[in-house]
Design a binder for these strands. Structure first.
Lengths: 236, 236
DNA sequence: CATGTACTCTTTGGATCCAATAGTTCGAAG
DNA sequence: CTTCGAACTATTGGATCCAAAGAGTACATG
């Protein structure tokens, strides 16, 4: 609800914003690969508009840090260095820890159950489709878990900041990680459960700390992935 | 240094970025007042360019949340609600606390002295020009204090996130606050000194906590200012 | 055969043009 | 006198046009 109100006040959905969102989704879904070029003419043709709004959408995306614009060379999907990922996730960990801490005193029984159910569903879902290509579904479910907690925290700016942080990297890879690697999947599930337990116990410090280590671990995994793949991304 | 590298990778300075920076400065300096309209034609004429790059710059600024774009009605400098300020400063407090905590183990003697000197200079400077209109100078000095600590923290993303947070509100008012109100000025000075003391003592927890309360207090003051003025801003 | 230079071609960047939209003002009718 | 409506105007939004810049290639020359 605060998100909606915020969006309302910031920018009632217009065409450029829609374009920016669509392009972002394309990148997040991996349809435009890391390091891939964003040609204005192509995008314009794809969405059936002229280049002008596309350019504005690109400028909008540029601020987020998801893409890099080289003068006269066009925009590319940024390939984050592993240390950048670690840095961002350290910040995100701090913020999500704050969200968890704030959520303790506000969360309801129903919301606690909702978290537990959604976590369980996510686990069973991804276990069933192990090595399947339905990663986006899983990502959505994983995001829902974290988003719900930040929403409960009642600080809209906090949610927005975390979103911006997440929006800085293509996240299809992070979901691939969990779906592919069964150990990661199990750990992820267990960590979520510990977070819910701390929230249920009303232990703010524990909830914050559990959340912090959980996010740091996720960041580490993602950073390692980039370390491995960073050299091969360019070749194909 | 990481900032420069970041900026390099993200977007080597181009004309649109310069425009965005200039417009941002205009807003931050208060030359375009809160709630003021940003007419594309005017800005274009002011900077001697066409409307096209101005539009892109506006889109870039829009992402930061400093301005709000109403479809077909143009962009205005957002008037933040007091609760938005409080929310943002709560997030900022958490992040600056993290920065202070990280800085403890990295800061050098010279940097500690530098912080102390710059704080003292800022105090004397603003005391001398009390009620004067040289607020921007003071703001710069105050920013330098915080910026130095976040730089020392060694996490570039952390610095960028804090900057984004600060960039969401016109800050000429916050500097006016300290210059005008002598009590605020004294408290600000004392808080900075306590932070430096904690850093010097190598007490990470204390440094983080001092920083947190300092930022929260600053946010409170800013929010109160907006509460008082919010009704009169529109009339002029 | 290698290397340097010039040319071409692709893509971005900025300016101008026209359409669409919302606010405002003026007028007419109740 | 008030209120509703319609036209006018100021401003944004999208498309098109042309210039500029960079990369790749081909050709010529040492």
């Amino acid at each position: 609800m605060p998100d909606q109100a915020d969006e309302e006040a910031l920018s009632p959905a217009t065409l450029v914003d829609d374009l920016a969102a669509k392009i972002r989704d394309l990148i997040m879904a991996g349809e435009i690969p890391i390091g891939g070029q964003l040609r204005q003419a192509d995008l314009a043709a794809t969405f059936g508009v002229s280049r002008t709004p596309v350019r504005e959408a690109i400028r909008q995306l540029q601020s987020g840090g998801l893409i890099a614009v080289h003068p006269n060379r066009g925009a590319v999907v940024r390939v984050p260095a592993p240390w950048e990922v670690r840095e961002a996730y350290e910040v995100r960990a701090e913020l999500e820890a704050l969200a968890a801490r704030r959520a303790v005193s506000r969360i309801t029984r129903e919301q606690l159950d909702e978290l537990e159910v959604s976590n369980r569903e996510m686990y069973e879902h991804s276990a069933a489709q192990s090595a399947g290509e339905q990663a986006p579904t899983h990502r959505r479910a994983n995001d829902a878990f974290h988003t719900l907690i930040t929403e409960i925290s009642g600080n809209a700016r906090l949610g927005r900041t975390i979103e911006d942080l997440n929006g800085a990297f293509p996240r299809n890879v992070s979901s691939q990680l969990i779906v592919t690697d069964s150990r990661h999947r199990d750990e992820n599930f267990a960590e979520h459960e510990r977070i819910v337990a701390a929230l249920r116990a009303g232990d703010a410090d524990a909830a914050a700390e559990e959340m912090r280590v959980h996010v740091i671990k996720a960041g580490d995994a993602l950073a390692r992935w980039y370390e491995q793949r960073s050299s091969t991304v360019f070749s194909g």
